[in-house]
Amino acid sequence: MKDLIQNILNGNRRALARMLTMVENEREGYQQALAALFPHTGHAWVIGITGAPGTGKSSLVNALAQKYRQQDKTVGILAVDPTSPFTGGAILGDRIRMRDLYSDPGVFIRSMATRGSLGGLSRATRDAIRVMDAGGFDVILVETVGAGQSEVDIVRTAQTTIVVEAPGLGDDIQAIKAGILEIADILVVNKADRVGAKNTVQALKMMLEIGHPAARTQPVLHHGELMQIENHTSINPTPLWIPPIIQTITMDFTGIDALIQAIENHRAYIEQNHLSAEIERERIRIELYERLQNVLMTRLMNGLTQQQIEAVVERVRTRELEPSQAVMMLIDMHNTEGML
């Protein structure tokens, strides 16, 4: 174990790969290993890339990584793809778009399956990022599963979140309603050489004008009259940052420099406004809450037998118990002292 930790810190890639497997499978001792690595984290800038399937997330990651390598920065990539809910298996195909990076020792790509998580990442992604961080990467790019409207885990994980759009994927109403756009620190219209790219940019601009808390500090013009739109709270941790819209074509690297500049601007914004600590505090709160939920749930379930659960299931089915009553009953059945 001590060797494994030391090897990871020394930049040994096989050790890093092994540790990632350990974390994903929650193998015995993984928590101690994570605890040993934890003091060595906090160096990397974590960039999330999310968006609908087919918008070009993997290709964008490929292009970004190459540009960062030109700046001599090392790049860790975590690419998440979905686990089949029926078979538990997964096809992880993001590497196909990243073949330019394979032979570069300054890049490490790891594919992860969601393994039942629904928020666009897997349960182990947060830990995997920390392992890579301890492995010494300057930049960590996290690509989510093809996400639609509510897979927003990434915003609580990455320091800069990029939402990728492409022309021809629905009208402006999709842009207004989709929660995924609210999480963007940077909006990318990829495949900008395609027909309809201008419309997509326009729809996003409009969405920002009427929907983004920061953009609303400028009055909105409606039928020639100034309209006041009320602020509401956003889950975005930096509400006064106005997301830039960057057009990219990954094939010839159009817009990639601009995107990297936008990422730098966002990072500078966070750092100059001393927001890092509060953002981190909020994330730790959420993470602890989620982990507490998991641990308590596991302990509770371990304290109940299959028969006990089945008996309660049957009583709900026969309308003898209402589900929320049934839950209270399951908790009572459990020895609460043993749980805590």
């Binding site: 096809i91 992880l92 399956a113």
Partner: peptide, 16 residues
Amino acid sequence: IARALRDAGFEVIYTG
């Protein structure tokens, strides 16, 4: 094969 192995519950890294 990749698809069949996925259906058997494997995690298949497909590089093409």
